[in-house]
Every structure is written in structure tokens, then in C-alpha cells.
Amino acid sequence: MVELLIFLVLISVGYFFGQRSEAKHFRSIRARELELMGLITHNGKHPLGVDQLGTVTESRLVYGSVVISVDYFKGVVAGLRMLVGGNLGTYETLVDRARREAVLRLKESCTDAAQIINLRIETSAISKGNQNQVGSVEVLAYATAIYTQ
């Protein structure tokens, strides 16, 4: 009985706080993405439009990273979903959030760059002790920022 109660409390806390923080996070991601849209970022090896770019004065490695964890509710839903298979929507939004946040942090670290090239994104799961399930994901985005005169 007590265990069931704890479970219900955890799941409702997870649901309410998780949904709220996710909605908030997505709003902030969208706003910042719009703001930084002017900064050209791509995953090619060479800068785009070399003739218009002018002389490159500096190029340096930049990166942004974030660790985001699932909430209890999402974990339970994903666990149930795994019984029947199919899309784990709760995890999809999780990694989507993490990737976009990592790229945004990368862009924010070099807003005065002319271009950001060779963007690479890497995802890894951080194990959370005894339970052998995905508790949180770490996303690292790294790229080369190019500065011109």
C-alpha cells in the first residue's frame, strides 16, 4: 500500500514538474533559435561563400554540452511502451531538447563569429547506478568557429 502511494506521488510529481519544465524549455529553445538564426552553422568542412567571406583571421574550437534527465513519469511511460514496442515519444522529445540546447550553447559561446563550420553532435547515456536504464543523456556539440576581418 505504502509502496503504491510512493509510486503515485513520484509519478504525479514527475508528470506535473516534468511537463511544465519541458514546455518552458521548448519555449526558451525556440526563442533563442530565432535569435541566433543569423549565425551560419553547418557541418561542411569548408566555409560557405569563400569569396564573400574575406580573409579568415582566426579559427577555433567551440563546444556546448548539456545533460538532461527524464522525469519519473516519462520513464514509466517508456517502460510500458517497451512492452509493445514502437516510438518512445517521451525519449524522442528528451534527446531533441538536449541536442537543440547543446547547439544553442555552442552558438552562444561565439556569437561574434562569421561562420561555424564542421558541426559534430555526439550523444551518450550516463548510467545512473544500479538500474540499467537510460536516466539521462549527455549531448556534446562541437564545431570550428571562423572569424573574419
Binding site: 519544465s21 545533460v67 513519469f73 540546447e101 556534446l140
Partner: peptide, 27 residues
Amino acid sequence: MAGLKNIMGGELTAYTELLTESRDQAI
């Protein structure tokens, strides 16, 4: 703290910092 955060979801700032620090050191 990270364990608690795992219930509510969201960013684990402590881990983000940890990984940033260690990445800087590796570089």
C-alpha cells in the same frame, strides 16, 4: 541531488558542469 532531479526531469546542472570541467582539462 541528481537522483532527485531524475524524478522531476530537466537539466542536471551538476553533471553538465562536471563534464565541462573535465572536457576543459582533457583539452
